[in-house]
């Protein structure tokens, strides 16, 4: 049971990091991306390759993942950021679909559907993190770092400019803000943290393949942010814990055949998204209902 809870806690920390990173885009930047799993994946592949080919050092893997995912996210976002609203969502959907195909086909790098197997347990400065508790602490450390960065930045002029842009792009432009630069920086930061989450995920599962980086995963991350409350510090964490605890909670419902658990879980998750958007669109932790 302890091992199970530790495993769940590790996943919660990793997905918490992931939703905090998406919140920078959706919540603070008003950039509605449905392709976040792509950057999670890029980080996971980069981290896995560092671990398999160089050394399983978690800091090195996280750095490589952050660079790969951050830089690529900024490069990919540059052309797409020129368009607004619906177009950006559709472009990100298209990117997600293309990336899934590329991840599957580029099997020399990604292992295709077979994935990259046998990722060794992580170390930090040569000290093994094979103990689940130690690894959990490292994951929580990264999460805390991300939260601190977000809190700091959002109080600085960068964050204020970003949020001004979210609330009214033309007003921000009129105030002399460099809109494309602000947006690109937000995407870069979000992509880099998603990449770090990917590297942690690769170590946690000891295995990565394309199935973890599909549209469904992107939507799950988006749901964590939206259900918890976009644009708040605690919201994405709340959403993460709720959505991760859901499958575990369902296994305790008596009389539910194990083969149906997956479908029932999806049903509740979809229903929660719809009902929440109707009655509480700012999310559970959101204060400013009807702001947007």
């Amino acid at each position: 049971m302890i091992a199970y809870l530790l495993n769940l806690a590790q996943l919660a920390a990793i997905f918490g990091l992931l939703s905090v990173s998406l919140n920078i885009l959706i919540g603070y930047g008003g950039i509605f991306s449905v392709a976040h799993a792509v950057f999670f994946g890029l980080g996971a592949y980069a981290g896995a390759h560092v671990a398999l080919d160089l050394a399983p050092d978690i800091l090195l893997a996280a750095l490589a993942a952050a660079l790969t995912a951050g830089v690529l996210s900024a490069l990919l976002a540059l052309p797409a950021l020129r368009v607004r609203g619906e177009y950006f969502v559709i472009a990100s959907l298209g990117l997600q679909m293309l990336a899934t195909t590329v991840f599957t086909e580029a099997s020399d790098i990604t292992g295709g559907l077979g994935g990259l197997v046998g990722i060794p347990p992580p170390t930090v400065f040569g000290v093994s993190l094979a103990d689940p508790l130690a690894f959990l602490l490292v994951c929580l450390g990264f999460l805390a770092l991300a939260l601190a960065v977000v809190r700091l930045l959002m109080r600085a002029s960068f964050g204020r400019a970003l949020m001004a842009l979210r609330d009214s792009e033309s007003a921000a432009e009129a105030l002399g803000k460099n809109v494309p630069l602000l947006k690109t920086l937000a995407v870069l930061l979000g992509g880099a943290f998603a990449g770090v989450a990917g590297a942690l995920f690769a170590f946690q599962e000891a295995f990565v393949n394309v199935e973890s980086f599909t549209l469904d995963q992107s939507v799950l991350i988006m749901a964590m942010v939206i259900i918890g409350g976009a644009g708040t510090l605690a919201g994405p964490l709340l959403g993460t814990v709720l959505l991760l605890a859901l499958p575990a909670a369902l296994t305790f419902i008596p009389g539910l055949p194990p083969t149906d658990i997956g479908a029932v879980q999806q049903l509740i998750y979809g229903l929660a998204m719809t009902v929440l958007m109707i009655f509480r669109p700012a999310g559970l932790a959101g204060r400013l209902a009807g702001r947007r």
Partner: peptide, 21 residues
């Protein structure tokens, strides 16, 4: 019983659970 979904991803997750839990 753990559901592998017939996929590598499901296999890794399920095996982790069978071994650790």
């Amino acid at each position: 019983a753990e559901d592998s979904e017939g996929t590598p991803q499901g296999g890794a997750v399920g095996m982790n659970k069978l071994v650790n839990v």
